[in-house]
Design a protein around this nucleic acid. Structure first.
Lengths: 186, 186
DNA sequence: CCGTTCTTGAAACAGTCGTACCATAAACTC
DNA sequence: GAGTTTATGGTACGACTGTTTCAAGAACGG
């Protein structure tokens, strides 16, 4: 009995809040401006999410969910030569439509460096990719349980993403990845 | 005539403020707690630096100055095989006493992604290393004006630093660098 | 002493922050 | 209609922000 709950509202708000965070970043986020941009009120944000901290956690989870969903658009990681697979991953990761995710990723990392306690599972953001890349580049691995190769591949990708987001020099970043691809696959 | 100025006070404050920022990060910085930690007052911080923005700029400049000064302790970049030089740079960069600088570096980068206007010369933080590494790895370069190789080396270093600061898994990071060193110098 | 310049403290200003409280409106069952 | 539950709006609280203002103290030259 009583008025029925409307869980869809929370979902709609979460989706729009995630859009907003991806567009404007996490650093300066505050409830009142966010509520205004989302056509709602700080009252409702607290009502739906309990606290700002929980809201942020929900937004980050949603952003991760979206990133994982779009991973489906990535070229297959099991086919072709290692160099071809690497190029495919890089093209996917460095595409302009992934830029907001990359920005948020670096922002969360930086905040996690100062407040590790806020991100109890930030190691998972590393190990998730780790497993994926570990199997994708098994054939160029240095033995059976080689963790160095996927770690190196991840480092190159993240390092080049860092460079690309800072300098915007896509051509140079592309050439650097090509250099690495040739080093990896003879 | 009149009371003589005391420029040393500003320098002392700047040094201690830089210590504090390196230890606690830039994100949550605010004048009153900072002043308390530095045994001074917000009034004096404003008196010496004009505004919080200028204080932060001065602190970042001082941090960069310190980093450049300690660069002298880095093993020579011109000697040995490329692999040896790479190991030397990595050992220097990833040393625990460099961790605060690395943290601040990532923090500034993340903030710069959202507010590029605050860091007009953040590209210099990239190109500075660029020139250094460009000459250091000229012998493994792919031609005369090869920008791909130093870009790749930088990406590996930064990517591994990212991994190391996030996971703390030094052994795996070291092995990944070793993998890269062997790829680079046959 | 006076005048001048640098230094410093205390307080206030105008704003934002996350959040809590209280009331009311809306949608449902009976 | 009453009763009950969810959904909102408005408002205020206490804490914090960077900055300003006013006043007084400290160190010098004349």
């Amino acid at each position: 009995m009583g008025r029925p709950a409307d869980p869809a509202r929370r979902e709609r708000t979460l989706a729009r809040a995630t859009d907003h965070v991806l567009a404007h970043g996490l650093a300066g986020l505050s409830l009142r401006p966010l509520a205004a941009a989302l056509d709602t009120s700080p009252r409702m944000l607290l009502y739906d999410f309990g606290s700002k901290q929980e809201l942020v956690a929900a937004v980050l989870a949603e952003a991760r969910r979206r990133g994982a969903a779009r991973l489906a658009g990535c070229p297959p990681l099991g086919a072709g030569t290692p160099a071809q697979r690497l190029r495919g991953i890089w093209a996917w990761l460095s595409a302009p439509e992934r830029a907001p995710f990359v920005r948020l990723f670096f922002e969360v990392h930086a905040d996690g460096l100062v407040h590790p306690e806020h991100y109890p599972d930030r190691a998972r953001a590393v190990t998730d990719w780790f497993d994926t890349l570990g199997t994708a580049f098994r054939d160029v691995a240095d033995g059976e349980n080689d963790t160095a190769t996927p770690t190196l591949v991840m480092a190159v990708l993240r390092g080049l993403l860092f460079d690309l987001t800072t300098t915007g020099d896509r051509e140079r970043a592309d050439r650097a990845l090509e250099r690495f691809a040739r080093l990896l696959g003879p």
